[in-house]
Design a protein around this nucleic acid. Structure first.
Length: 291
DNA sequence: CGTCAAATAT
DNA sequence: CATATTTGAC
């Protein structure tokens, strides 16, 4: 029947890992110098992924306001190899593969939804996301894929005919990541385009849980050849990760001319990415501000 | 800058 | 081998 535009988010929200189970990083990394020495000397440069989403509120600038791409500030904290060994290759060096986690993608979708398909361009989305380390290319790339996903879904929901209770449910194998994030109904409505910008406000009944986006860095390198391409997100079996997490909350690179109102509802960013590529360097984000 | 296609890594 | 993400070109 009709699509529920008030059920999609409530459902995906449940898929979020338990935010209360994460973070408690008691044991920081192994010896900083040791771990780092191990990491960086691998193949490339292994930096510490830091995601810096808004602390409490989501500083999503008004859609009608075009933020300025002022120079990004860099806040290299000492988290890097204990002070002395601090290297700063995070400037013009090649960044590791960015792993789009469901949470990150959620931010992406939210930004796009608030911007509207018309204003949903890489630059704007990137700035709206306010994710430290995220680059325009990252967003552009993902946006491309996201568009394809939407297109697929449109064709499916339109041509497939309204099967009973089916609703939109693409194959999980076709796109697991996208399927994990709720797709605003407006995205599939080319004719439902509002006059100017259609910003919808999804109400996320999220508790007062403020979770910083965290990323997992591959630490242990055991097997040189081992690939696991399985998405294990949705519900942490034990909330037990073997990778050290680093949650970094930099001051924030937000320099938009707008006072930034809370357009986005309270988010509950969680982390849950465990990359353990045998002997490979897999990171999620990079501590660098580039506009 | 934005988008599409191909390349590469996982 | 398929998918995800990156890189290059337009």
């Amino acid at each position: 029947m009709r699509e529920d535009d008030s059920n999609w988010f409530s459902r995906w929200e449940e898929e979020l890992p338990s935010p209360e189970e994460l973070m408690p990083l008691s044991q920081t990394l192994i010896s900083p110098p040791l771990a780092m020495a191990f990491d960086i000397r691998n193949t490339s440069h292994q930096q510490f992924p830091h995601l810096s989403p808004p602390p409490s509120s989501n500083p999503l600038p008004s859609p009608g306001n075009l933020p300025q791409p002022s120079s990004a500030e860099f806040a290299d904290s000492g988290e890097l190899g204990s002070g002395t060994a601090g290297e700063e290759p995070a400037r013009t060096l090649k960044r590791p593969r960015l792993v789009w986690t469901p949470q990150l993608h959620k931010r992406f979708v939210d930004a796009v939804a608030h911007l509207g398909i018309k204003n949903a361009v890489p630059k704007t989305i990137m700035q709206l996301m306010s994710v430290d380390g995220l680059t325009r290319e990252n967003v552009a790339s993902h946006l491309q894929k996201y568009r394809l996903y939407l297109k697929r879904m449109q064709g499916l929901s339109a041509g497939g005919g309204g099967v009973g209770g089916g609703a939109v449910s693409a194959d999980p194998a076709t796109d697991h990541l996208f399927a994990s994030s709720p797709v605003p109904p407006h995205f599939l409505h080319p004719a439902a385009a509002r006059s100017s910008s259609d910003h919808y406000l999804p109400f996320v009944p999220v508790p007062a849980i403020q979770q910083q986006l965290a990323v997992a860095a591959a630490a242990a390198a055991s097997h040189p050849q081992f690939h696991r391409q399985v998405g294990h997100f949705g519900s942490p079996p034990n909330g037990h990760f073997e990778v050290p997490f680093l949650s970094r909350q930099s001051q924030n690179v937000q320099r938009m001319g707008a006072p930034v109102h809370n357009l986005l509802p309270g988010y509950a960013e969680d982390m849950e990415s465990a990359n353990a590529s045998g002997g490979r360097k897999v990171l999620t984000l990079f501590p660098t501000g580039e506009d």
